[in-house]
Design a protein around this nucleic acid. Structure first.
Length: 645
RNA sequence: GCCCUCAUAGCUCAGUAGGUAGAGCGUGCCCUUGGUAAGGGCAAGGUCAUGGGUUCGAAUCCCAUUGGGGGCUCCA
């Protein structure tokens, strides 16, 4: 996942418009950066200032990238080098090579790197003029392009936009010279040759632009000592075990079928049970927060999406149209236009606002084939969607309320690490990527910023990543093993209400355009369940478990007792199975354990005669109790959505 | 979409000097009636992803397609 990290900037409240820059954290520290619970953001902001970039590990990784580049250059004389930064947990370097790298190449390269490191070469920094730099890198077209940018003061040597014109510096160790801002370690001796490892090769566009040539990127990792490296590799292994795709198959939650199509998940009965629970939860919470539920179709005429702006701005993410009786229809990529039409279906008064329309809407998005990723990126998705129509005066209250709803959910799911990613527009995209209305962009962005600052919500501001109709907040969460996901989203929409000429009559009797807040705290079923699978490692809390109870008769003389018990629990709404196979009890326990069923009820002669059950919890603990007591226990756990087993 | 890579039984995987397939788990049946993570036996199950090509002969070599994975980019 590390390479999925995006350019970003930590911004404290009141900071000015910030441009994206590469910033990555070592995981141990990144955890501290995340906003945890309700505490104030002040000290966290201070911690944000302790940059990963200032750490020794960062310098080690950056320097190791240079060493790797040297090794590659020696192996492939004439290779073109691009950029090679340190990233979370490691580093990479991009190359333009005459042929594709193989795993054997990586071994070769790593071997050579070890030799170079052992040579104890100092890293020497030198500031040079643009002219001299061009001379040094005359055979390196990518470097020349970067020098151009540096000279114009537009980008740094990683190609990221900068505020001030930087000086041009080069770093040399042994025979290798690189255009580089640094910092580096003093000497290759500071790199532990036993704590580095090259991981894999992949393609990467020069400067991330698909119109540019595809380069070969080598990912590697580097640590202070071999123990840390080992720990890191162990963490990768652990992450594999929690991979939602693997767990989804093992626990029989969902499946994909080639004939159905890529990115189109099929939910099995067990997955369906989880979805039922999540929808039940959402309905309860939304009821409490005064939402009303609506239902809308999966497709609509072309006109609707022209009107909404989806076709002009979002067409490439939509499935192509189907034509019927000369009319073109599209399956919806979002629910908003339909909800707007419901708003418009009758005159609205300020007394109707805020109007909160909620729907678990199914949408279809044509994600590029290479984008698909298990349940996390799919083409058919069911969203915990709602649109809140409100006046400007109500905006802050509504926005804050939505944030509070997020917090409720996070507490329930035991999500302890998260932060808000505030995506704003960039003027250069006006009329292209973004609706052309600079005043409204500024106004709504200020409103969001203000609402977050007033509520002490720390956030990261990212330029040029807004939705086409307005600024948005993405909520980034970390799973129990520290992988980061975009889960919830919260978007301000000032464009569509105007496009649809939505109005309400205000207190002065005048028509006024409402603001619209899109929000999806529980994300989509697909992404949320993918996340939860990893987060819980498949061991769902009782209320969410696809199978809550497995009844295990010891011999088949208890089968009838088991079935009666099963029926009794079933009638109480408990998801329960009785294992009547001829397996021995030990095997039955093992099977239930592997399926991560929270409660096993072992029933033998003794239990049957006493009207009792021998409860074995998923954690291995055991306790014999009357049936009534167990019923009280499980119904309480389910009712309170307890995290406790 | 692009670069790389992979595709053998429901699952995990063997099967390299090209001679039309194996294991474990799972499933079914039989025996076993066993007190907290695998009792034993037998059986069924694969046109080796799909379509072409090379060859006397292809799971094995080549091409294309489909799907999966690692990334780039994008996003719920």
């Amino acid at each position: 996942m590390s390479a999925r990290l995006r350019a970003r900037t930590w911004v404290e409240p009141r900071a000015n418009f910030a441009r994206p820059r590469k910033l990555v954290c070592e995981p141990a520290r990144a955890a501290e950066f995340f906003y945890s619970g309700q505490q104030g953001g002040a000290e966290m902001v201070a911690k944000m200032r302790e940059r990963y970039e200032d750490s020794k590990l960062y310098r080690i990784r950056h320097s190791t990238a240079h060493v790797m580049a040297q090794a590659v250059m020696e192996l492939f004389p004439g290779a073109k080098i691009a950029i090679g930064p340190a990233i979370e947990d490691g580093f990479y370097y991009d190359f333009d090579l005459p042929r594709t790298l193989t795993p054997e190449d990586l071994e070769q390269i790593q071997k050579r790197m070890v030799e170079i490191i052992k040579g104890k070469h100092p890293f020497v920094r030198r500031v040079v003029s643009a002219e001299e730099a061009r001379q040094i890198f005359k055979d390196q077209p990518y470097k020349l392009e970067l020098i151009e940018g540096l000279e114009r003061g537009e980008v740094d040597e990683d190609g990221n936009p900068v505020e001030e014109k930087p000086e041009i510096s080069i770093y040399q160790h042994d025979s290798f010279v690189d255009l580089c801002r640094g910092p580096h370690v003093e000497n290759t001796a500071e790199i532990n040759p036993k704590a580095i490892k090259l991981l894999h090769v992949s393609g990467a566009y020069w400067r991330g632009d698909e119109h540019n040539p595809m380069l070969q990127r080598i990912y590697g990792t580097a640590w202070n000592d071999p123990k840390e490296l080992e720990e890191y590799l162990w963490r990768l292994e652990e992450a594999k075990k929690r991979d939602h795709r693997k767990l989804g198959r093992e626990l029989d939650i969902f499946t994909f079928d080639e004939e159905v199509g890529p990115g189109l998940a099929l939910w099995t009965p067990r997955g369906g049970a989880i979805i039922e629970e999540i929808e039940k939860l959402a309905k309860e919470v939304e009821f409490k927060h005064r939402y009303v539920r609506v239902r809308t179709p999966h497709l609509a005429k072309e006109d609707l999406f022209v009107h909404s702006g989806h076709l002009p701005y979002y067409a490439e993410s939509m499935y192509p149209p189907m034509e019927l009786e000369g009319v073109r229809y599209y399956v919806k990529p979002m629910n908003c236009p339909m909800h707007h039409k419901i708003f418009a279906s009758r005159p609205r008064s300020y007394r109707d606002l805020p109007l909160r329309l909620a729907e678990y809407g199914t949408c279809y998005r044509y994600e590029k084939s290479g984008e698909l990723f298990g349940l996390m990126r799919v083409r058919s998705l069911q969203m915990n969607d709602a649109h809140i129509y409100c006046s400007e005066a109500q905006f802050e209250q509504e926005f804050t309320d939505v944030i509070k709803m997020y917090l409720e959910y996070f507490e329930l799911f035991g999500i302890q690490e998260y932060y808000m990613r505030f995506s704003t527009h960039h003027p250069r995209g006006l009329g292209k990527k973004y609706v052309n209305n600079p005043e409204l962009w500024k106004k709504t962005e200020d409103m969001v910023r203000q609402a977050m600052q007033k509520n002490g919500i720390p956030y990261i501001e990212i330029a040029d990543e807004a939705a086409f109709y307005g600024p948005k907040i993405d909520v980034q969460v970390r799973s129990a093993i520290g992988r980061e996901f975009t889960l919830a989203t919260n978007q301000v929409d000032f464009a569509q209400p105007a496009r649809f000429e939505l109005t309400f009559t205000n207190e002065a009797g005048q028509p006024e355009t409402p603001l619209c807040l899109h929000r999806a705290p529980l994300s989509t079923h697909e992404r949320l369940i993918g996340f939860l699978l990893e987060h819980y490692a498949g061991a769902f809390p009782v209320w969410l478990s696809p199978e809550q109870v497995r009844i295990i008769p010891i011999t088949d003389s208890q089968n009838e007792y088991a079935v009666n018990l099963q029926n009794r629990l079933y009638d109480l709404g408990v998801r329960v199975e009785a294992d009547l196979t001829p397996d021995r009890m030990n095997a039955k326990i093992r099977k239930a354990q592997l399926m991560k069923v929270p409660y096993m009820l072992v029933v033998g002669e003794k239990e049957m005669n006493a009207g009792a059950v021998a409860l074995r919890k998923r954690d291995g603990s055991q306790q014999v109790m009357p049936v009534e007591e167990f019923i009280a226990l499980i119904t309480d756990r389910i009712r309170t959505r307890s995290a406790e087993l």
